[in-house]
Design a protein around this nucleic acid. Sequence first.
DNA 1: TTTTGTGCAAAGAGTTTGCAACTAG
DNA 2: CTAGTTGCAAACTCTTTGCACAAAA
Lengths: 135, 135
Amino acid sequence: MSGAELKKVGLKVTLPRLKILEILEGAGDQHHLTAEDVYKMLLEQGEEVGLATVYRVLTQFEQAGIVRRLNFENNISIFELDTGDNHDHLVCVKTGHVKEFVDPVIEERIREIAKENGYSLSGHSLVIYGALDAH
Amino acid sequence: MSGAELKKVGLKVTLPRLKILEILEGAGDQHHLTAEDVYKMLLEQGEEVGLATVYRVLTQFEQAGIVRRLNFENNISIFELDTGDNHDHLVCVKTGHVKEFVDPVIEERIREIAKENGYSLSGHSLVIYGALDAH
DNA sequence: TTTTGTGCAAAGAGTTTGCAACTAG
DNA sequence: CTAGTTGCAAACTCTTTGCACAAAA
């Protein structure tokens, strides 16, 4: 991902956008970030970017299909790169740790349920909440 | 549902609580209500109840297991009576209409996924979004 | 140069809280 | 009587917006 990706979706290549992309890509296992998280990471890197810009950029990325916005419990909004695999999430209620999974059986049932009810499927949101067992 | 239900969970039987219960029960097919919806319905009935009380009561009901709180896209919070069937929701992206469904196949997979990943399942949230087909 | 993006501060939506008055038990 | 409840207004959190300035194409 780079400046070329931005041009492709009609966004000018600017420093805030590049930095935010970089953070989303580089976050590794911690790539489920709130806008505030992204903002703080920018500050830690010494970037002078406003929180409003973070929201604007994330929203633009979402509309461009670069980013997915997830709504967890308690109205917590999380952003992650849209890798196109349309995965779902398993969230630890104790630690907040987020794990991804893809389940073909569930995907198929979702398609069927939409169809059975006469809906054109446009998306879904599945979050499983649980406590990571001690062992 | 009545005053007895309230006593059972340790809440005093007050007029705002009874009225809110009544609204949640009587809403029929429209029983997916925002706090604001409930508040407006109270006003329409000529009840002098504050919005803060609506939030407080709904939150208490949720903690008591009488009510479920759902978080749809765009951070819209919806409240519904908790009937104990643990159903999921199908939402029309055009009209906002909400339909309930229960799918044993999905339920089972969710239990398995939690287990496979070493989590004690505490709950899940599944919302399917789609457009109701014209016909 | 023209269009688009940015930072800041202010505004907005939804929800929660402090507090004095009130009411169910 | 007394602990729990309420209405009101103020506070809070998260997010969006208006606007003058700055930067990309």
